[in-house]
């Protein structure tokens, strides 16, 4: 138990320290010391809440899927923007909003969170609530609701869950 916790804290210190380096971009020794001090304090104080480490397959096995995911998401975001911009700038404002329920296919918390945020970023859909069984989605137009399940992002996430 203590062993596991120690490993988690050390991981957190390393992550926070590298993040500090990336943000401050300064290799002066006082700066390094300050960053190390704060990352240690934060990792101990927030050891329960921040960055929980779960057992998962190695990142290398999934990295190509992760790249796929990012590009698919960016493409979806661009499509979403053009669609929403067209709706907003249309003088007639052609919307027919509703809140619908779609089944949850993903099981891991990480992929569920990624999928929830992806729904928010994709065309005309907005995650309202999320659980293990269903997702509540607000749609801006009736037609869009039928297309959520065919989203390529979800396929990539389903593939990501199968890697083990």
């Amino acid at each position: 138990m203590w062993q596991e916790r120690k490993r988690e804290i050390i991981c957190k210190i390393i992550v926070l320290f590298f993040f500090w380096l990336l943000i401050s971009w300064d290799l002066d020794w006082s700066n390094l010391l300050l960053g190390f001090f704060f990352s240690t304090v934060i990792s101990f104080v927030m050891s329960k809440e921040l960055l929980r480490a779960d057992e998962s397959p190695p990142l290398l096995l999934r990295s190509h899927l992760l790249v796929n995911f990012v590009f698919a998401l960016i493409w979806e975001v661009i499509k979403a923007n053009l669609l929403v911009a067209r709706i907003i700038l249309d003088p007639k404002l052609p919307i027919s909003p509703n809140i619908i329920e779609i089944p949850q296919k993903l099981k891991l918390p990480v992929t569920q969170a990624l999928w929830g945020n992806s729904i928010t970023l994709t065309p005309g859909t907005l995650t309202v609530d999320i659980s293990d069984e269903r997702i509540l989605v607000h749609i801006i137009d009736e037609e869009i609701g039928k297309r959520i399940q065919q989203n390529p992002v979800q396929k990539i996430l389903l593939k990501m869950e199968k890697v083990n």
């Binding site: 923007n81 911009a85 907003i88 801006i140």
Partner: peptide
């Protein structure tokens, strides 16, 4: 911003804000 002013309720306004703001 135009969407924020034109759309009728909270959820629709969120649509306008999240999507167009991110891009």
């Amino acid at each position: 911003t135009i969407g924020l002013l034109r759309l009728p309720d909270v959820y629709c306004r969120l649509h306008a804000n999240t999507k167009t703001d991110t891009l």
